[in-house]
Amino acid sequence: MTTTISKTIDIIVAPDGQARVETRGFVGSACRDSSRFIEQALGCMTGEQLTAEFYQTAATEQQVRQVRQQE
């Protein structure tokens, strides 16, 4: 069985034009790669925050790789 959750990038543009980009549904560092094009297109990055889910999914990705290697 394969479970796939949709991957989205949310961009919230404040009334003063400043933007916040949030990634959802990505595994590990893939979120950074997937949203980079939007970040570069909009302007200059002023801050970055990695949530607990980033590290959780990164660990999950590693576990899945290990299982696949053992098969």
Binding site: T2, I5, V21, G25, C31, E39, L42, T51
Partner: peptide
């Protein structure tokens, strides 16, 4: 054999703040 592709149920994993720059006509 069960393979779970994604366990992240749509929660935010990465937040970036951006100062908008006008560069595109």
């Amino acid at each position: 054999m069960f393979v779970v592709s994604y366990l992240n149920g749509g929660t935010v994993s990465h937040i970036v703040s951006i100062q908008t720059e006008i560069r595109d006509p």
